[in-house]
Design a protein around this nucleic acid. Structure first.
Lengths: 343, 343
DNA sequence: CTGTTAGCGCGTTCAA
DNA sequence: TTGAACGCGCTAACAG
């Protein structure tokens, strides 16, 4: 019945109008439900649309209305399981809102991030969701004056109402982890830390240190090895830690990926987890519930946060209210920690 | 010096022209390098752009030129480590080409995928990259008549030059895996298969079966348990397999995630890998090199494939040549397989 | 309820 | 080398 010749040139609204014998505005009204139109014409127009295979041109529409219907999402690594969860949450939060995400990766490189912002602005995104990254705060603040900005994983002061930054108390979570270990009798606890220029990594290190000191155990720099948040650095760091501290009974890794590296290093050295060495990670990656043994880790509700942030910006855009949300870090107790065996 | 008041309304090219005391066309020419413009005016215009904080409106430009500069990328799950790698490759393949990706997830649901396509068309993407999914072939073919289409992970006949589908020989790889196991003396090999409606899963099962039969071992349906490509199904399937087949000495999982589940099930049952049970996965996820023991798996060069596909569509769009690419599946031998111990 | 008229911001003729 | 005028496809204001 309805056959559209695969024409090279897309069909326009005007052509539909001509085909249906009505004016362009009428077609537009039907498309957008802007006004009542007689049923007969509606039918004609719908038939014409079907026959011609008409697809509205989003650019023309955006140009005319001044609304792009898209929100920019700046992530750091499109393949990251960590940010991936947040992206999934954002997608679901945007679903049905009429807005669609425009996702670009910044690769933790400021100039990549700047390019992304430029692309967002030239594409006239109506709001921005930023996952981590290194964009200078003043730039974020300036953006927040132009459109709703929602930031995940960084604490940024956004004076503008309509914008927000959602960050978790990494230091507190790390503090809790170390106390948990201390409570189980561990005294010499190694720490695989993250990059020095990464705020979360620093916060976790600070929590580690503070917990120790609050309990009266001096902080020993030698028990901290710096990694880069990837598996190999965890593996190497662990080898080093074990070699230098034979009496170490637990390792707290600043993220799960490095904990995986640590796990393998221990396996190679013939050390059992948790009997010989307790291990705690951070992030609770999907795979962490299936390592052997399942890894005790700190869960960050990335998907929920992403979802809420998406709903937040939509609420700003549509002038709705949104119930506040206080995400919580949660220590997922699994099987990679055991009480210290007395010597 | 250059202060742009954070005006609500974006600056337009016309305003820049007025500020610089030239005509809009001149500004346009400078922006696009379309023609020679006197140095003095160039300076004035650049100053005006700077002063006003002008950002070109991509919609208006697209409307005028008829080119959107974007390529649609249909993935299935934005948080999937598997497709994530491909997305990363696509990003890098597009980098510097002037095109930017518009990424939407189809969630393996045909109607979500249809919506994504609609959004792509209304956003006038100039090419399409499709990662897996369930879109009917005829629809893909029809799309391929309108624009370059590159498909990953499905073998689809695209008569149109300018389009392509890149798929790996999953059956062959599975065949090789099982032969590898057979060569190591394993005779009762279990298989954790994937969803019945998933072409790759079926191909892997077929390879498993064919390898067995080609070597003179009858295919036993009881040794196959169907999963859903996620960890829990691998765990449960393995428990079931082990309970029903105490003489089984190896498990071939149709993907790594299920293999992780299997690994944990074996751990819970006190079975060692690889001493008591050999285990092989498929996909070679980033984490698979760090499981204990590291998992032998089939690597799919997702990032490379994504990269090449991106370059392919860009080549189509710009009328360049591109060197062909034949991706290869590769069995990554690690430590989760051991020769069968004689009883 | 519907058609006509003006733009939306930009690129691109066509003259000058 | 530059400007004026027109059009890309669509929505919105204004009549009728």
């Amino acid at each position: 019945m309805s056959q559209s010749v695969s024409s090279r040139q897309p069909v326009t609204l005007a052509e539909v109008a001509r085909e249906a014998g009505v004016s362009p505005s009428t077609v537009s009204r039907i498309l957008n439900g802007t006004a009542q139109v007689k049923a007969a014409k509606v039918a004609q127009v719908k038939a014409a649309i079907e026959k011609l295979g008409y697809k509205p041109n989003a650019f023309a529409r955006s140009l005319a209305t001044g609304a792009s219907g898209s929100v920019g999402v700046l992530t750091q690594d499109i393949a990251s399981p960590f940010y991936g969860d947040a992206l999934g949450g954002i997608e679901s939060g945007l679903m049905g809102s009429g807005y669609s995400p425009l996702i670009i990766s910044g690769h933790w490189r400021t100039d990549d991030e700047e390019h992304a912002i430029e692309l967002f602005m030239s594409r006239r995104v109506e709001a921005l969701i930023v996952l981590g990254g290194h964009l200078p705060e003043h730039e974020l603040r300036q953006l927040a004056q132009q459109l709703p900005v929602a930031i995940l994983g960084r604490r940024v002061d956004l004076p503008s109402a309509g914008s927000i930054s959602l960050a978790l108390d990494n230091q507190r979570a790390a503090y809790d982890v170390v106390n948990y270990l201390l409570d189980r009798g561990h005294r010499r606890i190694g720490h695989l830390s993250g990059p020095r220029d990464h705020a979360d990594a620093l916060a976790r290190l600070a929590g580690y240190r503070q917990a120790l000191e609050d309990r009266g155990f001096p902080f020993q720099p030698g028990l901290v090895v710096q990694g880069d948040f990837h598996e190999p650095s965890g593996l190497i760091g662990t080898q080093q830690l074990v070699a230098q501290h034979p009496d170490m009974t637990a390792i707290f890794s600043a993220n799960d990926q490095m904990a995986y590296g640590a796990r393998l290093a221990l396996y190679r050295m013939g050390l059992r987890v948790p009997e010989d060495m307790s291990l705690v990670g951070f992030d609770d990656l999907p795979g962490s519930a299936y390592t052997t043994p399942p890894l005790t880790s700190v869960r960050q509700p990335m998907a929920e946060m992403g979802h809420w942030l998406a709903r937040f910006v939509v609420a700003q855009l549509t002038g709705q209210e949104i119930t506040p949300f206080q995400p919580q870090l949660e220590l997922r107790l699994r099987e990679s920690v055991a009480p210290r065996r007395l010597p």
